[in-house]
Design a protein around this nucleic acid. Structure first.
Length: 196
DNA sequence: CGACCGATTGACT
DNA sequence: GTCAATCGGTCGG
């Protein structure tokens, strides 16, 4: 399938977030290939958005957010978890979209191993139904921060087209500022969407 | 420097 | 439902 071009990413995070639903995230590591359909995302609007890591401007930690769209921003939080974002917009905007949940497609046995789940169990929603869970499943950590999504290691491709009516919006999860903004987007009824 | 807290998860009452 | 794990960023003194 066709890799998404730079122009997909260099737009507003609100547009990119909605358009990311249904796209396929591919992660290659050695001989292993992981892939999954994006089913839940949240937009973070840079210096305009008090919930964004970019709100207070560029630092060593969030430098990748201030690149042009199409790079991967991976951050460490709660002392143990990694979360992955797609950087959007033009350079120096600090905009990104958090990938919150995936529906696994390829590499499910390896994802189970990465998540310490018994391999004989059926695929379960708990494999990738949260931003830190999917990073653990796909073996994404701080070392992947700054990866160019137009490269061969981690990238996105087109998926099946999705009707607008199949998606929903809500407020974002786990934040204390900017609570009222409905910048979370998800595929309605999909079993891998976090929270329930 | 110390205190607080976070774009979370999983274990436990 | 509550709460600990665990550490880097941020802010106040």
């Amino acid at each position: 399938m066709k890799k998404l071009p730079r122009s997909f990413y260099t737009r507003s995070p609100l547009l990119v977030a909605q358009d990311l639903l249904g796209k396929i995230l591919v992660r290659k590591i050695g001989k292993h290939v992981f892939s999954g359909k994006i089913v839940e995302v949240e937009a973070y609007r840079g210096e305009l958005d008090p919930a964004s890591h970019a709100y207070r401007g560029k630092t060593k930690r969030n430098e990748v957010m201030f690149r042009e769209g199409g790079f991967l921003y991976v951050y460490f939080t709660y002392g143990m978890h990694f979360c992955a974002n797609v950087v959007t917009g033009k350079a120096n905007k600090g905009e990104a979209v958090l990938i919150r949940a995936l529906e696994p497609i390829e590499g499910i046995e390896d994802m189970k191993r990465n998540r310490n789940m018994p391999p004989d169990k059926e695929p379960m929603y708990s494999l990738t139904n949260g931003p830190a869970k999917l990073c653990q499943a796909l073996d994404i950590d701080g070392g992947n921060n700054g990866t160019d999504l137009l490269g061969e290691e981690i990238f996105l491709t087109e998926g099946k087209s999705l009707l607008k009516s199949a998606t929903g919006t809500s407020t974002r999860v786990g934040i204390s500022r900017g609570k009222e903004k409905k910048w979370r987007f998800f595929i309605k009824g999909n079993a891998w969407v976090s929270k329930k």
